[in-house]
Design a protein around this nucleic acid. Structure first.
Lengths: 225, 225
DNA sequence: TTCTTGCTTTTTGAATGCAAAAAGTTATGA
DNA sequence: TCATAACTTTTTGCATTCAAAAAGCAAGAA
């Protein structure tokens, strides 16, 4: 076992805390507080903060510490197309190397997912959905691609998760997944690339709409106080 | 001016040293030596090392320090397709937002580049070539895309630069650039996306061949000694 | 000679300490 | 009352120090 160094450990811990929504976007993250929370000293913590900043999860202000990166509509517009291109590429590569067994695994996940959709189990749906996309990425056997994708996905993860999308979009997303599975089964690279890209574009729209509503409700709740 | 913190400064310094070929791939980089070379203390240097490792320019071995990341054929096969997808996406987006002035700038660079090609000025050719690709990326107005691209490009930069490719490939590359300029002038997004992707694929092949030859000559020179 | 084994040196990992910058607070004057 | 200035506290940036792990080395046994 390659025992991870403390600094690496801290990086994943903070990353998971951000993913878990333990911080508000834009919030300051004092070193001291994090040190106590994770019971580590400042040196490895600071190393971790620098890494997370280079990943885009934190923003560093010289002499003023770190802040949790804000997710904005502009952000989403920048990141989603890139993810679309990467997943599209992943789909193409996957078509040329995926095994029948791997497709069967994805098919199983797909039916699990549609079951969750029918039962309106949003959390479970999300989980299996992510698993399907990961399977396609991993089928490329390109670790750099997976890493690049996950890095981008991490930055918008919270916004994506919180976008409790409307029923009609949910139905549409499931329909898109039918096409994804279909293209993959036929190993139709260009069709898969196309539908994955569209799928991401639509997701982007949904998340952006949700983000807009969130921002609007925040403003109104503040005004109400 | 946002005065960069020392650690940021160190990151760019080391990055540039790697780009300048001051290190051999796989070489160990003792902290002490770098500290003296850059005349900084270990704390900010170590922060910089962690960041460069997360960028993939260095590889960290627990308790054994940092090494310069090796460029391998597998690496190139992983990275180039991703760069192809990103540049392809950049081309598409660029077509929809690039101004006539920006196209003129690129055209000017293009003719500069072909002049260098005619005069067999490889270094100058490379420089202008890079500038053209950067212009296309920047025309997207998507900083995340530029950053992601540059991060990948950085990892293979040395190998790419050293791939003093053969004359026929050079001629072919220039021909591809004619098509790039042509598609961009017409704002033909799908044609531009296509040719950029092909261009990167061909470049990948060239760099891989060069890397293979390099490795072979290293082995033979070792055997000769 | 070659392979262990134990010791020394070097290098890395992490904690502490110190200085400078920012933030917060109080007091004074208009 | 409000604004400004001086002072205090907190926080950040970096250097130094200490501890642990790895690497290097020498002596002894097969």
């Amino acid at each position: 076992m390659t025992q991870a160094s403390l600094h690496d450990e801290i990086v994943s811990q903070i990353r998971n805390m951000i993913f878990a929504g333990e911080f508000v976007g834009g919030q300051r993250v004092p070193e001291k507080q994090l040190c106590e929370q994770l019971s580590v000293s400042r040196t490895p913590l600071r190393e971790a903060i620098k890494v997370l900043a280079s990943e885009g999860l934190l923003v560093l202000l010289p002499n003023r510490g770190a802040r949790i990166a804000q997710i904005t509509a502009e952000n989403l517009d920048e990141i989603f197309p890139i993810m679309g291109a990467l997943e599209s590429l992943a789909g193409e590569i996957a078509c040329s190397r995926i095994t029948d067994d791997e497709i069967d695994e994805i098919r199983a996940l797909h039916f699990q997912m549609t079951a969750h959709h029918k039962r309106r189990e949003l959390n479970e749906y999300f989980k299996v959905n992510q698993a399907i996309h990961m399977k396609i990425l991993e089928a490329t056997n390109n670790k750099t691609l997976v890493t690049a994708y996950l890095s981008l996905a991490g930055r918008i993860r919270l916004a994506r998760y919180r976008a409790n999308f409307a029923q009609d979009r949910w139905d549409q997303a499931v329909a898109e997944h039918e096409k994804i599975l279909d293209s993959l089964s036929k190993r139709d690279a260009s069709a898969l690339a196309q539908i994955l890209r569209t799928h991401l574009e639509n997701t982007c729209q949904t998340v952006k709409t949700a983000l807009g509503k969130e921002a609007a409700s925040e403003i109104s709740s503040r005004a109400g106080k």
